[in-house]
Design a protein around this nucleic acid. Structure first.
Lengths: 117, 117
DNA sequence: TTGACATGACACCAAAAGGTTTTATATAAT
DNA sequence: ATTATATAAAACCTTTTGGTGTCATGTCAA
């Protein structure tokens, strides 16, 4: 599949508030560009660009139906994001258990700096 | 300080590849700016800016220790992202894709050390 | 065939993002 | 007290981003 020089990745795609709104709209129902546009205070061209970016990031995909093109979400890519996030889970659980350890042992570890944050 | 007019949100913060690398570094160990910088082909000032953005997005926080300032991750904000993502689950939970997640995370939290970004 | 509709593709522009270098300030060590 | 270290802050520059408007193309309906 596309290993092509993707200009936009998932992270950049969801960085823009308008694009996140578009995703939210498409969650409920697949929609053509002009209908999506009607929900925003900007031109259809602008929305088309946003959809292009979302599409390159594989967050949405469009299928032509007659003269319109209907866009819908692509679940797989949301999963990519979840995977990225879950990478960090291991560190937090470690951190939490370590904190618990420190507390239970009255913080006698010499090298540890306790954070008040 | 908690009511600042946040210029950068979490989504923008993680949009940049360098910043995601920084997060990855900080996952293992809290670090001062200069040490973080040593992992990148750019100036300390540039990294400082990235840290400022990550900090504004509440993904990291820094504490001064002597003349250095050590940065560490803030788990709560990662949770925010998870929440945003989980909103979409309802729309495709019946369909596919969650299956993939379950399978890939089968081994519980022992040594799943996937390379992320 | 003609006209309306839905979209795609350009060219253009202002503002923001991501980097640089320089200057300043606080702490540590000799 | 002086010097070296660690960071902060400001001015500046270039590329990218997010928007605009205009024109071209493809499809449906009279």
């Amino acid at each position: 599949m596309s290993s092509s020089a993707q200009k936009y990745d998932v992270f950049q795609a969801i960085a823009d508030p308008t694009r996140r709104e578009v995703l939210k709209l498409l969650a409920h129902k697949e929609l053509p560009i002009s209908e999506i546009t009607s929900h925003f205070p900007m031109s259809r061209t602008a929305i088309a660009k946003h959809l292009h970016i979302l599409s390159e990031a594989n967050l949405v995909s469009g299928q032509k139906v007659g003269r319109e093109k209907r866009y819908h979400l692509k679940p797989e890519t949301f999963q990519e994001l979840k995977d990225w996030l879950s990478y960090y889970d291991q560190f937090w659980s470690n951190k939490l258990s370590m904190l618990k350890f420190v507390v239970e042992n009255d913080g006698e570890d010499s090298r540890s700096n306790k954070e008040t944050d």
